[in-house]
Amino acid sequence: GSLMYASIFGNVSAIIQRLYSGTARYHTQMLRVREFIRFHQIPNPLRQRLEEYFQHAWSYTNGIDMNAVLKGFPECLQADICLHLNRSLLQHCKPFRGATKGCLRALAMKFKTTHAPPGDTLVHAGDLLTALYFISRGSIEILRGDVVVAILGKNDIFGEPLNLYARPGKSNGDVRALTYCDLHKIHRDDLLEVLDMYPEFSDHFWSSLEITFNLRDTNMIPGSPGSTELEGGFSRQRKRKLSFRRRTDKDTEQPGEVSALGPGRAGAGPSSRGRPGGPWGESPSSGPSSPESSEDEGPGRSSSPLRLVPFSSPRPPGEPPGGEPLMEDCEKSSDTCNPLSGAFSGVSNIFSFWGDSRGRQYQELPRCPAPTPSLLNIPLSSPGRRPRGDVESRLDALQRQLNRLETRLSADMATVLQLLQRQMTLVPPAYSAVTTPGPGPTSTSPLLPVSPLPTLTLDSLSQVSQFMACEELPPGAPELPQEGPTRRLSLPGQLGALTSQPLHRHGSDPGS
């Protein structure tokens, strides 16, 4: 009898404990919600809404976190579960008819179910419309201010047509639940991603989709105040780019002037030289400038040598048109050559190039014969006009050509200096018209024969001689050997007369 009593008592207590286990969990969670309300000092109306929603959600799901349970299964099984949970929507909604099984599984994985109690606001006026909503159960109302403009029910759709707008718009009203509602919502990016994977279904979906109420604000059109608020930074940046392009296009129409201050000032006329910023005076940081632009901040801005204009002085008759350009485009679109090309026009420029290279940067340069637009006047290309890779490749080509020119210049200078040193070592320090008596009659020769300089066969020296023939050397430049009979510069000019005159010897006659 005691054994029977113990078994009955144990079973009854276990049954009672299981009955009250759900209630215990409910009270535990309710205590957490109330502690949250007390800690954050939530006001009474919002506090009442929180408690009511918790009670309804507990009775609806029995305190089970559906998302946590669903995430515990593998992905393939999750797709089947989501397809079952959203079967009513996918079967009865017209846009989803005719979709393949794979497309429906992908869509079912992207849908999220939302449960809303009465009085809950789903979308506020001015919120971004980031999702498309399908009503599965219940009814909602749409308000503009305090005026109800629409009441939607089961199988209705609200949001915005995503295929017509590249960016999400703003809501033009509040969406509030009238009863307990079940909503299926899919985010904008998720829907577009699935439709991109199934393009054959995309056309059918957009053609058959009928949005019951379009929440997009109709005033959000390009150029409206609301649109400016939504895309303020983007609009200002776009206007700045367009104004920069218009100014650079105007600059290219004036090829007669070359400016070292950047493309923003290349198009300024002579009357605007004294102004601080020219056409860019209202925004000094709008356009890029070269490193020399920092010198323009000092006094005497109108007389600054940074602004270059072609000189009108005539060229000498024998002067060549100019050196070879550094870039391939210089032959086609440049009416002034790079300062480095002028360094190779003569030997005198070679000796004085490194010492006063900055001073020569603004000297007169030889002109190319074609009066085409200036290379320095070409505006900086924006990322939309020329690819970045093209600019980098041009810079690399320019750097390689500069290296080759520097190597060639160093070799030419070394060769010229070597020839000058050899000339100085071969010439005796001094010569006299009267020579010392020699031991015999073989001493009648006034000077030792001097062998002429070897013929220069280097390509670089031939180019130097060509430049010497075309360029007029300055007075202080050293002379180079030329073709024809060679003669030492330090010898007297009348050596031929010395050989014809008898030598005057000093000596005593033994017979006297």
Rank of each mutant, 00 (worst) to 15 (best):
W206S: 04
P449W: 01
Q237P: 12
L192I: 09
T336L: 07
G138P: 02
L143S: 12
P317R: 13
S312F: 12
F467E: 08
S283P: 10
G323W: 04
L152F: 01
T499C: 15
G262N: 09
R188F: 05
N338E: 15
L152D: 01
N163C: 09
Q363D: 04
P225A: 03
G169W: 02
D174S: 07
H184I: 09
S208C: 09
S259P: 11
S235A: 10
G269A: 11
S345K: 09
G153E: 07
A343C: 03
G233M: 10
I186G: 02
L209Q: 03
S382I: 15
S451T: 08
R144F: 03
P305A: 15
D296S: 11
L191T: 03
G264H: 11
S312Y: 11
V148Y: 02
P291G: 08
P325Y: 06
F134I: 06
D459W: 04
Y198S: 02
L456K: 08
T179S: 10
G226K: 10
S333H: 12
G159L: 03
A260P: 12
G346C: 03
N338H: 14
R358S: 09
K239Q: 10
L375H: 07
L326Q: 13
S381H: 11
C337M: 08
H187P: 06
L308H: 05
H504V: 11
L409E: 03
H204Y: 09
S341K: 07
P255E: 12
C470M: 11
L340Y: 08
E200L: 03
V391W: 15
R238G: 11
S235I: 13
F201V: 06
A414V: 11
C368I: 09
S283R: 06
V194R: 02
V175A: 06
T425G: 08
P317Q: 15
L164W: 11
E210L: 03
V391Q: 15
I135M: 03
D190R: 02
A430I: 12
E471F: 06
R505W: 04
N214K: 02
P478W: 08
V434W: 09
S443K: 06
D127C: 01
L419R: 07
I151G: 01
A150W: 01
G287W: 15
I140Y: 04
Q423C: 09
T444G: 06
V416G: 01
V427F: 01
E210F: 06
A343Q: 12
S334C: 12
F344G: 11
A497S: 12
R360T: 08
R385V: 13
S432Q: 15
L215K: 01
L453G: 11
E319W: 07
L503Q: 05
G323L: 10
R216A: 08
S171I: 01
K154R: 12
A343N: 08
D189S: 07
G169P: 01
G323Q: 15
I186N: 01
D146G: 08
R176F: 02
R216N: 13
D459Y: 05
F213H: 05
E324M: 12
Q363N: 15
T228R: 09
S462D: 11
S271W: 07
P288N: 15
D251N: 08
D459M: 12
P441H: 13
S171T: 01
G267E: 10
P371I: 09
L402N: 06
K170G: 01
E200S: 06
G355V: 09
P291W: 13
S445L: 06
L183N: 01
T499K: 06
T130M: 09
C470W: 01
V148L: 06
V450L: 09
I378H: 13
R236S: 08
M468F: 10
N338F: 15
P270W: 07
F158A: 03
F134R: 02
P446Y: 12
V258D: 10
S224H: 10
G476C: 07
G496A: 07
G153W: 03
Y198V: 02
D412C: 01
P255S: 11
G233K: 08
E210A: 09
H504R: 08
R167S: 08
